[in-house]
């Protein structure tokens, strides 16, 4: 299934204060594609994912405009009832901290079979058998022992696998993975990334992979979108982005990664921080931190333009040779 986000614009309202979290997101994730959304914290990654899942409470959230399509279903126009049928059944989500999102008082088995019984109408025994299957798929082949374990009895990596098992239990067509490896070690991280790629190959799920770390994204994605202050500033295939990053922000993000090759030199940093969603600078939102900014950046917001096939960026000076 294909997921398309069109011009999504979302605000958080509190009294007369308005935080403009998403300012027109456009994104397409094709069937069987792993699409990564990369940005610093506070840039709107998680708002995007929870908005797709319909998990944002309104109020305080106001969807100003935009549409989200899963093939031809408009997710934003669905009733709560219909949304619930899609959530978990067609779109599933894996969260950042497995320890936080698993219910500590329920056995893993109960948490997996719950959605099977609810969505697929399975009997308890059938659901348990299916649950064992799924656990093997995600590499938790410990048999019934895992089903009867509580979350605290599992290690961090096992918990994340259990989370993924819950997510894929109803054979979803689309998976959202919101920083699924941030809380894990490098070796576990590699295993979870491999698992996600494996599942994509087996189940041909489209995947939206959210991360703040370009290195993680490098190993897993087909396409990458870089998000800054609620707007996508660059969208390209993985190889293109790493070989020829266009937007100054993506370039700086790539340069700030420490590496043995850079020993003895200072790391490139991006001065300042992501603007507050309540107070986004006019013009290009990145201009206060951009080393290439000129007067036009302060006034006019650059449009997303395609510079090469499948590689677009939103910057006034892309393709002019000014950004070195």
């Amino acid at each position: 299934m294909e997921l398309t986000i069109k011009d999504l614009d979302v605000s958080f309202i509190q009294g007369d204060r308005e935080a403009h979290a998403l300012r027109g997101i456009n994104l397409t994730v094709g069937k069987g594609e792993i699409h990564s959304l990369v940005g610093e914290s506070g840039s709107g990654k998680t708002v995007t994912s929870t908005c797709i899942m319909g998990l944002l409470p309104s109020p305080p959230v106001r969807i100003n405009k935009g549409e989200i399509f899963l093939d031809d279903i408009n997710l934003l126009s669905l009733s709560e009832e219909d949304q619930r049928k899609i959530r978990g059944m067609k779109i599933a989500m894996v969260f950042q901290e497995p320890a936080k999102y698993l219910n500590p008082t329920l056995k893993i088995g109960v948490q997996i079979t719950e959605s099977l019984i609810l969505h697929l109408g399975m009997s308890k025994t059938a659901a348990e058998e299916k649950a064992l299957d799924i656990l093997t798929t995600v590499g938790l082949g410990g048999g019934k022992r895992i089903l009867h374990s509580y979350p605290h009895e599992l290690s961090g990596g096992m918990k994340q696998r259990a989370m993924i098992a819950i997510a894929i239990s109803c054979n979803p067509l689309f998976l959202i993975a919101d920083e699924p490896t941030t809380a894990l070690d490098v070796t576990l991280q590699e295993q979870i990334l491999e698992l996600i790629m494996d599942l994509r190959n087996k189940l041909s799920m489209g995947t939206l992979f959210i991360s703040h770390d370009l290195r993680v994204v490098h190993d897993i994605s087909d396409r990458i979108s870089v998000i800054y202050a609620g707007k996508i500033v660059e969208n390209s295939s993985k190889t293109e982005l790493f070989a020829h990053p266009m937007h100054p922000y993506s370039r700086l993000l790539l340069k700030s990664i420490p590496d043995a090759e850079k020993r003895g030199t200072r790391l490139v940093t991006i001065p300042g921080k992501v603007p507050d969603a309540e107070n986004i600078p006019p013009g290009c939102a990145f201009h206060p931190r951009c080393p290439f900014a000129e007067d036009i950046c302060k006034i006019e917001e650059p449009e997303m333009k395609e510079y090469q096939e499948g590689h677009s960026a939103a910057c006034h000076f892309c393709g002019t040779g000014k950004i070195q």
Binding site: L214, L253, P258, R266, L267, T269
Partner: peptide, 14 residues
């Protein structure tokens, strides 16, 4: 910390 902030702290330490 975020990758870009990491770089700031590492530079500070150096």
């Amino acid at each position: 910390l975020d990758v870009s902030i990491q770089a700031q702290i590492i530079n500070l330490l150096l």
